[in-house]
Every structure is written in C-alpha cells, then in structure tokens.
Design a protein around this nucleic acid. Structure first.
Lengths: 194, 194
DNA sequence: GGTTATTTGGAATGTACGTTCCTTATATTC
DNA sequence: GAATATAAGGAACGTACATTCCAAATAACC
C-alpha cells in the first residue's frame, strides 16, 4: 500500500485561502503558497492542481465557510427583519475585527479578475444571484408579516442591501472606523422601515 | 539645445491609467505598459519613474479626470437633490457603457492594495474623506432647503450614498444589467425623501 | 531483501519580471 | 564637421515566476 498523504487538505486549503485573501491572485506567488501551506510544490500540484485551480478551490472554500458562519449566526433570530439587521451587524463585526483589513475575498476577486477571467465572472454572478435570492426571500417574508415596508419591490430592496454589503466590504479596507460602517448599515436598513 | 521629448506625456499617462484600470497593478507588466503607452522603457523610467510611481500618477490622473467629468455633468442642476440623483445616474451610465466592465480604478486599487501598501491606504482614505465632505455638503444644502429628509444626520446620509456608489462600481463588474443598478440607485436615494 | 507505488523536498526548466545599461539617433552650439 | 546633451530602442541583468522533473523517503506486498 502506498505512502499516505501526510497533511490535512482542509487546513492547507484554508491557509491558501487566507493568503489569496490578503494578497490577491496576482499578488500571491507559488513560493509564498508553499510556505503558507507548509507543503512542497509537488504536494500542492498533486493535490490541488495548478495555481488557478487552487485559487478557485480557495474561493469555493471561502464562499462555503462564510455562508455556514452566517447561517449559524442567524439561527437565533426568528424575524426576517432581525435576520437582515444581524447580517449587517455580523458582517461589520467581522470586517472590523480583521486586523489585515482584507475585506471580502469574493469582492476582491471580482474587482481583480472578473473582467479578465470568464470563470471568475461566472462565479461572481452566481454568488450575486444566490445572495439576491436569499435576501429577497427574507424581505418577502418580512413584507408578508408586516414588519418590512411593502412600497418597494422585494427584489429592489434585496439588490440595495446586497450592494450596501459590498460597499461595506470595500469601505472596511479604507477605514477602520466602526462608527462609519454602523452609520452606513443603519441608513441602508432604514429603507426597510414602514 | 538637447533633443525634445517626442511624445505627449498626458496621452501616455492616460494609456497607462487605462491598462492599470483593466488589469490592476500586479496584473500589469512593464512590457504591456511599453506597448500600451507607445514608449520605450527608458522613456517611461525617465519621465514617470518606476512602475509604482507611474501607478500612483495614473491613480491621481484618474481621480482628477473623474472629478472634472462629474463636476461638468452637475453644472446643469441647481438643486442639491437633483445633483445627488445625477451623480448616481451619471455613474451608472458610465459603468454600463464601459465594455471592459472594469468598474472604478480607485475601488479596484483599494481592494487590491490598500491593506498592503500604506500610500495606497492613505490615498483611499483621502478619497473617501473628499467624497464624504462633498456629498455631505450637498445633503446639508438639501436639508436646509427642505428637499432632503432632515431626520437622518447629513454625515450618515453622505456615508450611505458613498457606500452605495462603491457597491455599484463592484456590481458593475458582476452584472451588465442596467435595471439592477438602477434599482439600487433608486432605493439608495429613497432615504433622502421626506 | 527486493519490488512497486506514492509522497515529498527541492532543484531544474523556460519564461517573465522590473530596472539598468549601452548604443544609436537627433538637435543645438561652436 | 566636431562636441555636447538628451531622447529613444531594445538588450542585458539579476531576480522572480509557474510548472515539471528527479531523487530520497516511506509503506505494503511478495
């Protein structure tokens, strides 16, 4: 029986994700990746494929872990409006807590590569659709229960909220001032009020 | 008397700006820059300095030309609220018209480099402060004349609007759908209504 | 112990990178 | 025409890049 793989794939991928998140795709070298992941070039190419393949896997890992973390933090809220408010609060807390000030890997990747790489553009669009749908479902429920303003279509509200979240993720790389981000969240969410 | 420079510095810088805008700082090579600018390496190094120096000059050129273009397009509006609405409309028109789907050079640079390069972070923060002040002045005037909602502080409204504009510049690299961006603008601006 | 198969370390490969250097071209002055 | 000064073309330099290759280490089977 052959020698077993001597590392944890999940941990290695997480290390790669964090490096790409800090430095971007073009700003990260394979040399840096070997150091961050604690693996040799052969192990990386064997397990993850080439640099772009590893990057795509890192993006998918990021999307899933952010999604899982968000869902986990929304469990305690039963009201759609409270869930939407929590989404902003949790996002801001995470952005502010991040000493690297690296924002969001998907937003960073969109601005770096979406206009150049079709597969990144497709990924970003898929991500947008997923979020729009998720936010729209919450808005609809809130409108049905009467706690969210019905005068604006749910899709428009969802798009606005998603757009605000994206803006926050860029703003967080410009200013570490929580008050600024909280102001933005408060005003953005105010459109939901009756 | 020595031989004169045989190219237009302004035109060359504009070419460099457009390439950095499409491909980012790390994604752009000096070789590509020589081709895009139509200059030799010596001419570029002589006139603009090294790659990072050229990039900073491109950023400044971009900031100034976008600012001038925006001011020009606001001249015809006398009302603060109409100016704010025009800012969104003009921004979206320009984003949608751009077949390269490259968004905004300052936003792209913020997400690529702001957490890694202090001078970029400083530039982004200065840009944020300039925009906040400009938008806040318009909001204040609108609140004074009664056409903008007074129940929300002007700074909070300004931050929200700036944040929305940033989000739009990222969204525009994800989707070419003008309706989506228009929805966002409409809802974002709705917080200004009395 | 030998064979086979796989993982891993890190050198090798060929190309790309940013920056400097060298040569040629050109303009002005003497 | 010669001397001087500068601009420009593009090669050279030293390093960096992504990817492949080779040797050593290790485990299981015979």
């Amino acid at each position: 029986m052959p020698k077993e793989v001597m590392f944890d794939e999940e941990t290695a991928l997480q290390k790669a994700k964090e490096l790409f998140w800090r430095k971007g795709y073009n700003g990260t070298s394979m040399d840096e990746l070997t150091k961050a992941m604690g693996l040799s070039r052969s192990s990386i190419y064997n397990t993850f494929g080439d640099k772009q393949s590893l990057f795509i896997q890192s993006l998918n890992h990021y999307k899933k872990s952010q999604h899982d973390k968000l869902m986990q933090s929304l469990v305690k809220y039963d009201s759609p409006l409270k869930k939407l408010q929590a989404i902003f609060r949790v996002s801001i807390d995470e952005l502010i807590k991040d000493t690297d000030r690296k924002g969001c890997l998907i937003v960073n990747t969109t601005t770096e590569l979406a206009n150049l790489e079709n597969n990144i553009s497709v990924f970003a669009k898929g991500n947008l659709e997923d979020h729009e749908k998720f936010l729209q479902d919450l808005v609809k429920k809130g409108q049905q229960s009467g706690e969210i303003n019905k005068s604006i279509p749910s899709l428009a509200l969802a798009r606005h909220l998603f757009n605000s979240l994206i803006g926050l993720k860029v703003m967080a790389q410009t200013t570490g001032d929580k008050k600024t981000l909280d102001d933005i969240a408060k005003v953005s969410l105010s459109v939901l009020q009756n």
